[in-house]
Computed example of a mutant assay.
Amino acid sequence: MSSAEELQKELMTVRRNAIELHSSDQVQEAIGKLAFEVTEACSGKVPVFVTIMNGGMIFAAELVKRLDFPLEMDYLHASRYLGATTGGEVEWIVTPSATLQGRHVVIVDDILDVGSTLLSIIEACKSQGAASVKTCVLVDKKHDRKARPGLKADFTALEADDYYLFGMGMDYKGFWRNAPGIYAVKESDL
C-alpha cells in the first residue's frame, strides 16, 4: 500500500470512528446566537476582524455573513501545530496587512485550547496600537491547562470536553477542516 493510500485509510478511519460532539445544525445555531452578542458589542465601531488561518476561516465566514454592520476583514497565520497533533512554540507565518493603530480588533479563531497563540496575537495587536482587542472563538476546550488561569475568549459559541477535535476549521493532521460538525478523535485512533 502506498503512503497516499495509507493516509487515506487513516483519515477515513478517524472520520468514521469520530464522536460527534456538536452536529452541523447545533454549530450553525450557536454561531447565530453568537452573532447577536458580537453585533451588540461591535456595532458602530467599524472593527477589523482578524481571522487566524487556517483554522478560523470557516468559522469566520459563517459568523461575518450574519453581522449587519460595516467591518473590515484581514487575517494572520500563526500556529503552534503546523500539521502536528501537539503544539510547540508560536510560529508567525503571515501578519495582518490592515493598520491596527486606533482600531477595534476582533480576533477570530476556531478553538481556544491552551491559548498561547491567542495571547501572543492579543499582545501583538496591542503593541500595534489597537484601541481594543476582543477574541471570538467557535469552541472553548474545557481543561485546566490554559496558558493563563481562567483564560476565556470574549465571545464563545460552544464548549467541548478535552478531546482532540476536528471539523468546522479544526483539523486532524491538516485534514477534515471541512467536516460540518465538531468531532472528537477516538483515543485509539490518535
Rank of each mutant, 00 (worst) to 15 (best):
E40L: 04
C42W: 00
R148A: 10
R16A: 13
F175H: 11
F49P: 06
K141N: 08
L119K: 11
D110N: 13
F49T: 01
T39E: 04
A78G: 10
Q28H: 09
D171P: 06
D154G: 03
T13W: 10
G32Y: 04
L67F: 06
A153M: 03
P47K: 03
E20L: 11
E10P: 02
D162S: 04
A157D: 01
T99W: 06
G55W: 14
F175I: 09
D74L: 08
A41E: 07
H143R: 08
E72D: 13
E159K: 04
A147Y: 02
I19G: 05
A124C: 10
L71K: 08
L71Y: 11
S43F: 01
E5D: 15
G181M: 04
V108P: 00
V137Y: 04
R145G: 13
G32C: 05
N17Y: 14
V38N: 01
E187G: 11
V38I: 13
A124P: 05
Y81E: 13
V46L: 15
P96C: 07
F36Y: 10
V50Q: 06
E187T: 14
A147L: 07
S188F: 05
V27C: 05
L118Q: 13
S3Y: 09
F36N: 06
A30Y: 01
L165H: 01
F155I: 05
L76Y: 03
F49I: 06
S24N: 14
E40W: 04
T85L: 15
V133D: 00
S132R: 01
I58P: 08
Q8S: 12
M1A: 15
S97A: 10
K146C: 10
L138R: 02
D25G: 06
H143K: 06
I93T: 14
G150A: 06
K173Y: 03
P149C: 05
N178E: 14
E91Y: 11
I107Q: 00
S24I: 01
Q28L: 12
K33N: 13
A179S: 15
D140T: 03
P180W: 07
D144H: 09
D140V: 00
A41K: 09
G56N: 14
T86V: 14
S132V: 00
M168Y: 01
L138K: 05
A153T: 00
I31H: 03
S120I: 05
A78P: 09
H143Q: 08
K65P: 07
R16E: 14
E91L: 12
P47A: 07
Q101V: 05
E20F: 04
F155H: 02
Y75K: 12
F69Y: 15
S79W: 07
G56E: 12
Q8E: 12
I93Q: 10
L67P: 08
T117R: 10
D110F: 09
S23F: 11
D113F: 10
T156F: 04
A157I: 05
K45W: 01
D140C: 05
N17K: 15
S132G: 08
G88N: 11
E20I: 07
V133G: 01
A98V: 03
V94W: 07
R15E: 09
F175V: 08
S43K: 13
A160H: 00
